[in-house]
Amino acid sequence: MTDPSPSDVALELERLRATVETGFAKVDGSLALLVQRSDQTDARLADHEQRLDALEHARWPLQNVLALVAVAGLALPLWQLAHA
Rank of each mutant, 00 (worst) to 15 (best):
Q80Y: 06
R37C: 02
L34M: 15
L16F: 10
D3R: 11
G73L: 02
T2Y: 13
L66M: 13
L81C: 04
V27K: 07
A54H: 07
E56C: 12
E21R: 09
L34A: 13
R44A: 03
L11C: 11
A18Q: 05
K26E: 11
R59Q: 04
E14S: 06
E56H: 15
E14G: 01
V69E: 08
A54Y: 00
A72F: 00
L81Y: 08
R15A: 15
H83T: 08
G29R: 04
A10D: 08
L74K: 03
A72K: 00
P61T: 01
G23C: 12
W79P: 02
D3Y: 13
A72M: 04
K26H: 15
F24K: 11
Q36T: 06
P77F: 02
R59V: 01
L34N: 14
Q50D: 12
E56L: 11
E49N: 14
H83I: 08
A84V: 03
D47W: 04
V20E: 12
A25Y: 03
H83Q: 07
R15G: 08
G73F: 00
W60F: 12
V9C: 10
D47M: 05
G73K: 01
G73E: 00
D42R: 12
D47P: 01
A25H: 06
A67G: 06
H57T: 14
M1Q: 13
A43E: 03
L33S: 09
A43N: 04
Q36G: 05
G23M: 12
L16D: 09
A84G: 04
D3Q: 15
A58V: 01
V27N: 10
A43I: 06
D39H: 14
V9S: 02
D47F: 05
D47N: 04
G73C: 00
L11P: 03
L11D: 14
A84S: 09
D28I: 08
R51D: 07
V20N: 09
L62P: 00
D28W: 03
R59I: 00
R59M: 04
L78V: 07
E21I: 05
L76A: 04
A84E: 05
S7L: 04
E12Q: 13
A75H: 02
H57L: 15
V27R: 08
R17T: 15
A54T: 10
E14Y: 03
T2S: 15
A54E: 13
V27A: 13
A72Q: 02
V35S: 05
L13E: 06
L34G: 10
A82W: 11
L62N: 05
L11M: 14
H57W: 14
L31N: 10
R51Q: 09
A67S: 07
T41S: 15
R15F: 09
T41Y: 13
Q63K: 11
L52G: 03
P6G: 05
Q36S: 08
V69H: 09
S38V: 04
S38A: 11
D39Y: 09
A25W: 05
Q36V: 02
L13H: 04
R37H: 09
R51E: 05
R37A: 03
R59G: 02
H83D: 10
S38H: 09
V9Y: 06
P61V: 00
A75D: 02
E12V: 13
L52P: 00
L66E: 13
W79Y: 09
G23N: 10
R44T: 00
L13N: 06
L81M: 11
T41Q: 12
D47H: 04
D3H: 14
R44H: 01
R44C: 00
L55I: 11
L66W: 13
V35F: 08
